[in-house]
């Protein structure tokens, strides 16, 4: 069990490690954002394991996208709750 291919956590670390040169060349402020993206993708390790996709980075990128879209949705909702209802929309 789990001996024929690395665990999902190991795969995740490997994929992250493969981008070490990319990360190194980023500005410090961007590096922190980069790390944050991976930290968010990490929440979906179980789903990535269950998917058992041959190209795991694709799944991790999708997980980042998913978290980003969640964030967009949350911000949009907050924005809508802050804005006064526009008079045209009431028609």
């Amino acid at each position: 069990m789990g001996r024929t291919h690395p665990s999902i956590t190991q795969t995740f670390l490997d994929e992250q490690g493969a981008l070490a040169r990319f990360r190194r060349a980023l500005r410090r402020s961007d590096q922190l954002v980069f790390d944050d993206l991976f930290a968010r993708a990490h929440q979906h390790l179980a789903a990535a394991a269950y998917a058992s996709h041959a190209l795991p980075l694709e799944v991790f990128l999708l997980a980042m996208l998913l978290e980003e879209h969640k964030e967009v949705q949350t911000l949009r909702q907050r924005l809508e709750s802050l804005q006064p209802p526009s008079p045209q929309a009431d028609e």
Partner: peptide, 12 residues
């Protein structure tokens, strides 16, 4: 192997 050699589901 990728599909079958898996353990139980473990979430974060």
């Amino acid at each position: 192997l990728l599909a079958s050699d898996q353990g139980g589901l473990v979430y974060q």
